[in-house]
Simulated scan of single mutants.
Amino acid sequence: MMKNERPPVYYAEYLQLEKILNAQAPESVKEGVRADDEMLFIIIHQTYELWFKQILHEINIVRDIFAQPNVSDNAPDVYNAVSRLKRVCEILEVLVKQISVLETMTALDFLDFRDFLRPASGFQSIQFKIIEALLGLQYQSRHGQEYYLSQLSETDRLRVQAVESETSLLSLLNVWLERMPLAEHHNAWATSHEKDWGFWQQLRHTYAKDLSEGEQNNLAVFDQLFMTQDTYPTERRLSQLASKNALFIMMYRDHPLLQLPYELLNLLLEIDEQLSLWRYRHIHMVGRTIGKRVGTGGSTGAGYLKAAAESHMIFKEISELTSFLMPRHQLPQPPQEVVACMSFASSR
């Protein structure tokens, strides 16, 4: 065996600690003003950006998986995507908890150096904007479009605009869901006493029986989304077929082949939830720290964050499908042909 000529790796050099640990340059020091908490403020936000970089790394791996012409449903593609999205969720939980560290800085502590930061703002984080865009948040759905690119340098503006034109994870998910044929096995679902009924007719019949008086509008929405193509809302990001298959996965998740797809859909909802939690924690922190002042970048501060939290739900169409779930014992029983398709190995 040939001797390994590769030079040894040293911890500090591998992590480039000299660059990282010397990358904090408080503005208060430059001004000769004592502001002991500016170091914390810088390190917290640098840490955010490092985690954003890791999130982007994971999202792009998942996008590459679903950009393939054929995605393996059992292994390793969907499993790999689920693992990556789990990691994203864990990172987002860390980002939410990290706000607790920043909240140890009081409003008076922040005022010691706040004015030195203008017009820099967290709103200028292009990595966060890229995360939202690659997940599937569209420009026209953004709150505060007048601020969205206006505070960025020309280089960063062009970079974000370029990402806006890329295919998002939500778009790729739509294509993947459309490929799953199980929800369209109409003939296989017909029964002797309801021989003209396919799966969706049976599901509607069962769903309608258990609706309360206040839920009757749900049946109209069910008809609009699932019964005919003519009534399907054109503004929805998921196609009718993709929505049908997503609901089918949620209802029959206990079958082997649907367990990973269900976990994937659930993780996307978890990402939305964690992003919302991060925004709401941010809202309360900003309220405690600057009150009704405008942000250093010129936004309305807490007001902007609250409106964004309410409108920036990326996977809302998936979460809304839970309105049409029902207890397992009420679901139409799959015929053997469909059960075989939902198993790892078909019966011989």
Rank of each mutant, 00 (worst) to 15 (best):
Y10R: 01
Y10L: 10
N22W: 07
A23Q: 07
A23R: 10
E31N: 04
E31D: 07
G32M: 13
R34A: 14
R34Q: 15
E38A: 04
I42E: 07
Q46F: 13
T47V: 14
L50V: 12
R63D: 02
A75R: 11
N80R: 13
V82N: 02
L85H: 04
L92F: 11
E93L: 06
K97H: 15
V101P: 00
D109T: 05
F110N: 05
P119I: 00
K129G: 04
Q138G: 04
E146H: 08
E154M: 07
E166N: 04
S168P: 04
S168L: 03
L172T: 01
L173G: 05
V175D: 13
W176Y: 15
E178N: 11
H193E: 14
W197C: 05
F199T: 04
K209F: 03
V221F: 05
L225I: 09
T231N: 09
E235M: 01
R237W: 05
L238H: 07
S239L: 01
Q240K: 13
A246T: 07
H255L: 15
L258D: 09
Y262H: 14
L264R: 11
L265M: 12
L268W: 10
E270G: 10
V286R: 05
I290Q: 07
G291S: 03
R293P: 04
Y304P: 00
K306M: 14
K316I: 06
F324V: 12
L331N: 03
E337C: 11
V339S: 07
F344G: 02
F344P: 00
S347E: 12
